[in-house]
Amino acid sequence: MKTCSNLFAFSFIFLQIFSSQINSQGTDSCTSSLNLKNKPLFDTTSFLCVSVWDAQGYILRYMQTDTKVWSFVLSAPNSNSFIGMGFSRDGKMVGSSAIVGWVSNDGSATMKRYFLGGQSPSEVMPDQGNLELVNMTSSVVAENSRIYMAFQLNTEMPSNRLIYSLGPTGRLPSSVNYQLSEHRQHTSTFLDYNSGQSESKSPYANLRRTHGLLNMFGWGILIPIGAMVARYLRQYDPIWFYSHITIQSLGFLLGFAAIICGFVLEDRLGVDVDRHKTLGIFILVLGCLQVIAFLARPGKESKVRKYWNWYHYTLGRVLILLAAGNIFYGIHLGDAGTAWNVGFAVTLIVFFITAVILEIRMWMKK
């Protein structure tokens, strides 16, 4: 029994040491010192440290080391991707200048300046931009499962609107033209250089919120409610008809306003949301076809009324399904968070349960 206890204790200690080694190798934090074998080419002893992108594990160390010299060390997990740090005037990626670094599988490290002139990779131009690097002080190293990008800038005060990006896994820039692939994640932040406080700044946050709420209430809530009124409250004629028209018209107007906000938002942010935009336009077209169908509605005794009904019901159901999917997709694109997903999902679940109950009740009456 004593031997088993000793063996258990030894195994526990071994696992603790092993796990602590793994954690120390794969993580970095502002509570630990920057202890690298391949040290940056400038002194980093008194640097301020701040966690700038918790979701991706980005750590920034910085300091003004001379009258017109600012020094930076950006640390991030090494995922066989490039990492980037951009300096922006307004928090937008387009129009900013960036420092991008990566370490290839053969161990060779590269760091370059880029000017982000547009949304497509061809408009992201290497060796351009308004960032002036101090000669012979830049370096990129990969150690302990992380990548460290160190550089110094000649500037009196760098922009406090910083953008961080993470490239696609396994698609590093080629030495032929150093063209960057489209990033898979990015974030825009505000950094107070004096206090070291960093916070995420979503550009045009109010416009984003308005776009999302209008879509959710217009296409995602009012349109399904109007459809349920038309299907389950027909015994209250003609109240159901006028209620249906009123609710659907309001939902269409809110949805139309949401799409206008979406176009403005896309233009201001300079982002690529073609799939989300295409779905939104298609949903708007379906809504317009429903309006046209209402204006061209044949009489109840007409022979083509049943075909009109089939057309009207089918397009309405397709619109509701596509709108719900596109709203979730928009929440994902905007990084709106779990609360938006949960809130809209709960609403849809309530609609579904209500519809099932009313459907059963309707068939039992028949």
Score class of each variant (00 low, 15 high):
residue 2 K to S: 08
residue 5 S to E: 10
residue 9 A to F: 10
residue 12 F to G: 02
residue 13 I to W: 11
residue 15 L to V: 06
residue 15 L to A: 14
residue 16 Q to C: 12
residue 19 S to K: 02
residue 20 S to G: 02
residue 21 Q to D: 11
residue 22 I to R: 04
residue 26 G to N: 13
residue 26 G to E: 13
residue 32 S to R: 11
residue 33 S to V: 06
residue 33 S to Y: 04
residue 33 S to K: 05
residue 33 S to E: 10
residue 36 L to C: 05
residue 37 K to R: 02
residue 40 P to Q: 06
residue 41 L to S: 12
residue 47 F to L: 12
residue 52 V to S: 06
residue 54 D to F: 06
residue 55 A to V: 06
residue 56 Q to W: 05
residue 57 G to S: 07
residue 60 L to Q: 09
residue 65 T to A: 00
residue 70 W to Y: 03
residue 73 V to T: 03
residue 76 A to W: 03
residue 76 A to Y: 00
residue 78 N to A: 13
residue 81 S to T: 15
residue 81 S to H: 08
residue 84 G to W: 01
residue 84 G to R: 10
residue 89 R to T: 06
residue 97 S to M: 02
residue 102 W to P: 07
residue 104 S to A: 13
residue 106 D to S: 15
residue 107 G to C: 05
residue 108 S to F: 13
residue 109 A to R: 05
residue 109 A to K: 00
residue 110 T to K: 10
residue 110 T to I: 06
residue 110 T to E: 09
residue 111 M to N: 03
residue 112 K to L: 14
residue 114 Y to H: 15
residue 114 Y to L: 14
residue 120 S to D: 15
residue 120 S to M: 08
residue 128 Q to K: 03
residue 134 V to K: 11
residue 138 S to W: 10
residue 146 R to W: 03
residue 151 F to H: 05
residue 157 M to G: 03
residue 165 S to M: 09
residue 168 P to I: 13
residue 168 P to R: 10
residue 172 L to D: 12
residue 172 L to Q: 05
residue 176 V to R: 08
residue 178 Y to L: 11
residue 183 H to T: 13
residue 184 R to F: 07
residue 187 T to G: 12
residue 192 D to T: 05
residue 194 N to E: 14
residue 197 Q to S: 09
residue 198 S to H: 04
residue 202 S to H: 12
residue 204 Y to Q: 12
residue 205 A to Y: 06
residue 208 R to L: 03
residue 210 T to L: 12
residue 213 L to S: 05
residue 215 N to V: 03
residue 218 G to Q: 03
residue 222 L to E: 01
residue 222 L to V: 00
residue 226 G to V: 04
residue 229 V to A: 00
residue 229 V to F: 00
residue 231 R to I: 10
residue 231 R to E: 14
residue 232 Y to C: 07
residue 232 Y to I: 07
residue 234 R to L: 02
residue 240 W to P: 00
residue 245 I to P: 00
residue 245 I to N: 12
residue 248 Q to A: 07
residue 250 L to G: 01
residue 254 L to A: 10
residue 258 A to Q: 01
residue 260 I to Y: 00
residue 260 I to Q: 05
residue 263 F to H: 04
residue 268 R to V: 09
residue 268 R to A: 11
residue 273 V to K: 03
residue 276 H to N: 02
residue 281 I to S: 12
residue 287 G to H: 02
residue 288 C to F: 09
residue 294 F to Q: 14
residue 302 S to K: 08
residue 302 S to Q: 07
residue 303 K to D: 15
residue 303 K to T: 10
residue 306 K to N: 09
residue 310 W to Y: 13
residue 312 H to K: 07
residue 322 L to W: 08
residue 322 L to R: 00
residue 323 A to W: 10
residue 329 Y to H: 11
residue 329 Y to L: 12
residue 336 A to K: 01
residue 338 T to D: 12
residue 340 W to I: 04
residue 341 N to R: 06
residue 345 A to S: 07
residue 346 V to R: 07
residue 350 V to M: 02
residue 350 V to N: 00
residue 360 I to K: 05
residue 362 M to W: 14
residue 362 M to Y: 15
residue 363 W to N: 09
residue 366 K to I: 09
